[in-house]
Design a binder for these strands. Structure first.
Lengths: 356, 356
DNA sequence: TCGATTTTTGTAATCGATTACATCTTGAGG
DNA sequence: CCTCAAGATGTAATCGATTACAAAAATCGA
């Protein structure tokens, strides 16, 4: 039982430094925060005392007095998702430059966790909130807003017009994905969803449907498989695919992971990609560069998204929002690579012309 | 110029609640933290006032007074690395259960960032520190320890015997990887490194060398390629590999990413895995399940590592360390999958027997 | 050198909770 | 009904900084 009391070592306070330097605490504070306000000589005296004592201000006391925590809460649906990790990197870089820290709010796809982070925000542990998720429900957001907390949404079309939103054009890009598949000759499509109920999924599916409509196709021309944003969703979709008699020839997956899972599974049954079935993903995770062949996908400007969102939040906190910050949309770029190609023998039209 | 002052809305204080309920602030405080200490009737009275006013305690004030921040700093070398993301998930689950929050210290592989997080810790913004990295240098760690801050290392063999360490058996597993390749008949090996100077790399390479020695091989029997823990390191290694006349037949990569990068590149040159070259990775990231064939690798118990480390830290903070918490080693498991196999034609011995 | 002005420094209030200690209630037992 | 212990509540100090305001010191021009 090696019981041992941690903490409670020395703890140097500003008063100690003041005594050591023979000045008042006010002067020490000024030296540290606004050096121009004190005489050079006093400044040096105090700094020497600070150095000698190894004083570091207690930031909790600072926070209480100044009412600024220099922390931001970042709520993300799931940390291990590389998409969010990359956004977070952008956020981190931007915030660090402004001297802000990140408190992580990881929902890990569990809604019960929302409340915890709403409370955390409301108990003034942070100066602002970055929502990488649509999960925090309306009333949570509302109470944060009522508390005067700056919030920036970074999730496709959070349905709340009253908070600034920095997003990637999910819907429009999903529409373009369909357009792209149709241009390659695909007429029977498949849609692999993301987490049902998530806004990202909703947007992407809406875009998919727009694309279907624009191509003059209808509900009978595509099949939809559901599941969360993970590899195994693609595998499950593949199982469904394999059991169909008239299989789709073009698959749009709402995320790269499921696209990859799908491909892996159908390959095991000797179905070739893209000859037998074309697959397009979404997100452009690094991993998608290393599948064979490399996955065709929409690459989102994730890092930039993170930086931009954080920048807007910093502006809100600083009280200087510009109207053009209110709603920012970034555009993904289509990476045409190896998993998509023109329709071959499996398509009706082609069948008529050439067999196999 | 939509300038607008955020924050500064209502701000309900404990005094407001007290007035509303007709009691003192002390009583309100007690109701909220230690309900058994007050009479039922007063309790209800106060709770009603809390509800009506929507009071939420200012956690900064609480922290100052109680000298507990209920936050932990987690320093990681790089967020986008799925390995750390997974560890972080374990940490998060454990800490959340104890009511602790996470402040993220992302070094993003840049050493300059260390200082920032040491300061953050020393300014008492957190009650403890979890080091997922060996980067924080000795003097940083020392000052944190002197400040009485509980620290737990979660990085292979942080060279500091004075802080508890929860680690995965990197070295031993690397040794076993070599043993495994040798058992398959491989005599010419390749080693793809991780970030030079990182402790993880150092350990894994040491284990690799141990394995080489145990197999009765020497420095002439393997080649080493260097680079950070990323996909492209494997690609670069493959370039080197391709230019050799007598190529290794068994490759150990210090991380799955570089193993995958390697495979992707050599495949492009029609080299078959595992027939022409066996590849074994390290980490067992989820992605490695979805390559074709699935990557042979050592899967680290990352989630468990995170939970355990966080648990030990909680113990330290609570002042109840057990001796067996001091140093914990978790064991990775070998996943024998599709990228390794017995030596075929490329090996000297085999060549003698059968051509091609 | 003096007074007015500016610059520098100090005093003490403040941020919003917790909690030691004092005081007042309550209820049991005589 | 009274006493006394136990329990409930209130008062005020405290955590460690920042900062408004007051006071002191330095600077300047005449």
């Amino acid at each position: 039982m090696s019981r041992k009391r941690w903490r409670s070592v020395k703890e140097i306070r500003i008063a100690d430094v003041a005594r050591l330097a023979g000045v008042s605490t006010a002067t020490v504070s000024r030296v540290l925060s606004d050096p121009d306000k004190v005489r050079k000589k006093t400044h040096d005296l105090v700094m020497e005392a600070v150095r000698r004592s190894g004083y570091i201000p207690n930031s909790t006391a600072q926070k209480l007095r100044t009412r600024r925590t220099m922390n931001v809460l970042v709520v993300a649906p799931r940390l291990t998702n590389p998409v969010f990790a990359e956004v977070l990197r952008g956020v981190d870089d931007e915030l660090t430059e402004s001297g802000y820290g990140i408190i992580i709010g990881n929902l890990d796809n569990r809604r019960e966790r929302e409340a915890r982070y709403v409370d955390l925000a409301l108990s003034r542990q942070v100066d602002g909130v970055l929502l990488l998720t649509g999960y925090i429900p309306g009333n949570g957001r509302r109470s944060m807003k009522e508390a005067g907390l700056p919030i920036v949404g970074m999730c496709a079309a959070i349905d709340d017009r009253s908070i600034p939103n920095v997003v990637v054009q999910d819907r429009e890009s999903a529409r373009r994905a369909v357009e792209y598949l149709v241009r390659l000759g695909h007429r029977r499509l498949g849609y692999i969803s993301g987490t049902i109920g998530s806004i990202i999924e909703t947007e992407r599916y809406a875009g998919f449907c727009e694309g279907i409509a624009e191509a003059g196709l209808g509900a009978a021309d595509f099949v939809r498989w559901e599941g969360p944003f993970v590899f195994s969703t693609g595998v499950a979709a593949a199982e469904g695919f394999l059991q169909m008699k008239e299989r789709p020839t073009g698959i749009f997956a709402a995320c790269d992971e499921s696209a990859i899972g799908f491909i892996k599974r159908v390959r095991a049954e000797r179905i070739r990609v893209p000859q037998d079935v074309s697959v397009i993903g979404f997100d452009g995770i690094e991993f998608a560069d290393y599948t064979e062949p490399a996955l065709t996908t929409f690459r989102q400007p994730l890092y930039e998204l993170g930086r931009t969102g954080a920048d807007v939040l910093m502006r809100m906190i600083g009280g200087e929002m510009r109207p053009e910050d209110w709603s920012i949309r970034l555009e993904p770029t289509l990476l045409e690579r190896g998993t998509t190609g023109p329709v071959l023998h499996k398509d009706f039209a082609s069948l008529r012309r050439s067999r196999m």
